[in-house]
Simulated assay, not measured.
Amino acid sequence: MSTQARRPDVPQPPARRPEKPASAPAGATDRTPPRPATPPRPAVPPAVPPARPPAGGGAPAPERPALRTFPAFPAPRPAGQPRPRDRRHTGAVDLTPRPGAGAPFAPAPRGPEHDQATTRLRPVPRSPRRTAAAAVCLVLGLGLVAGGAAGTWLTGDPAGAPDGFTAGAALWHEAPVDRLFPPTVNGKKAGPGGADRTWTRIALAPDSGCAKALDPLLASVLEPAGCTRLLRATYTDATRSEVVTVGLLFTRAGQQAMTDLRTRFRTEKLDRRRDLMPRPYAAKGTAAEGFGDAQRASWSLTVLDDLPAVVYAVSGFADGREVAEPQPAAAATADGATTAPAQAGLGHTALAHTERAAARLRALAHPDTEER
């Protein structure tokens, strides 16, 4: 008997059952669970060939993404053609109400509580007092409009004219006489060589028309502007050796007509023509008693375009001497003038009074204008 230890018995692994052949009989039993079916692999899109580099050797063009296609909309169904039964493939939507169903998009019925909360607008009853007040306002408005139109027609001012221009048309009867023709006029540096001058008023002419106060030819030139009133005053200097008549002619023309008249005088130089020289005002018992047409030595005339007025001044000697060659103020005040009116300073006198008279009118019509 052997004394060596005996190794324990190791169980043998079970024998692997052979696979059932494909041609196994139908009645053969196989307890092996079936393997799950392998899903088919998705189709792999064909590989897009890489973009070829441009011929110049630059960077390759970016790849364009594949365009996604959408199903085309169905063509409109001709009239009279029956509606297709299967709407899943046509894309049509049937909005025909079905029996027992409400109309599509129909609003929900309102309950009685909604009707009670709704505010109803009731007509306001007419009041006799309101009707009468509206009629009175209408009559007053029409009266104001008619009054404004009548005033515009009477004064001859166009619509939209400045207030100062309209106010200037009434200065002849609204402005004080001492404002239009001050008793004393101071002319600083108004004489020859910049000398100061002073003139005193010695006569006032009553307001009149233009028929007898102007030369007929000058009146015909100013006729398009019309003549409302003509105001005149005569002054003398401190030495009582010269006299000057200042005239303010108020017209009926509008602003555009005055602008046209002013342009004509400047273009044609009508203010320098001797046959258009204004006439003086000679008052008896004064230093200007002998101041007539033959004694006129110099003159100045200005047509205003911001006021309906024409301003002029005509000067002469106080001793009544006649002047054979009167000279306009623009020529008598020029450098180197040697005529008698120029040497006596009569051109400076006429020009100074014209400028100061125009400045006074502007100051009266436009309060913001500084008077000289």
Rank of each mutant, 00 (worst) to 15 (best):
T155W: 06
A357R: 02
R98K: 14
P14R: 15
A135I: 08
Q255G: 11
S315R: 02
A350R: 03
R7F: 07
P62S: 11
P33E: 13
G191E: 03
L276I: 04
L180S: 04
A72C: 02
T32M: 05
Q295M: 03
P176Q: 05
P328L: 08
R272N: 15
P192N: 14
T90W: 14
P128Y: 04
E63R: 11
A363M: 06
E325K: 15
D260V: 15
R240M: 09
K212W: 06
P76Q: 06
G226F: 05
S2K: 12
S127V: 06
N186W: 09
R272L: 15
A365C: 10
T69A: 04
D260W: 10
T236V: 09
F70Q: 08
A37M: 11
T339K: 06
A205C: 05
R360D: 00
L142Q: 02
E371H: 15
A59R: 11
D207L: 03
T131W: 05
P76T: 05
A175R: 00
P46R: 13
P71L: 00
D368P: 01
A175T: 01
A350I: 02
T90G: 09
L140E: 07
A51H: 15
A5G: 02
L140N: 03
L346M: 09
A106G: 07
A150P: 02
G168Q: 04
E322S: 14
L171V: 04
P18K: 12
P42V: 02
D30H: 07
V311T: 13
C210I: 04
L217S: 12
A365L: 05
R321C: 05
G148N: 06
P45N: 14
C210Y: 02
Q343I: 09
S241P: 05
G347I: 03
A75I: 05
G56S: 14
P183V: 06
A167D: 08
T333H: 07
P78M: 08
K284H: 15
T119A: 10
G194I: 09
V44E: 09
P280V: 08
A287C: 01
A146S: 01
L67P: 11
G143Y: 01
A313L: 10
C210G: 01
V303G: 01
P183H: 05
S241K: 13
G168A: 12
D163G: 10
R120V: 12
G209N: 02
P206I: 02
K20W: 13
A283C: 08
T354W: 05
V243A: 11
P326Q: 13
A66Q: 09
P162C: 07
A146N: 02
T155D: 12
A213S: 06
A257E: 15
T234F: 00
P82K: 03
V303D: 03
V124F: 09
F265M: 07
Q81C: 07
G141R: 03
R85G: 15
A340I: 09
P280K: 08
A352G: 07
V323A: 06
R229S: 09
A309L: 14
A149P: 03
P216H: 00
W199Y: 15
R16L: 12
A344R: 07
R262F: 11
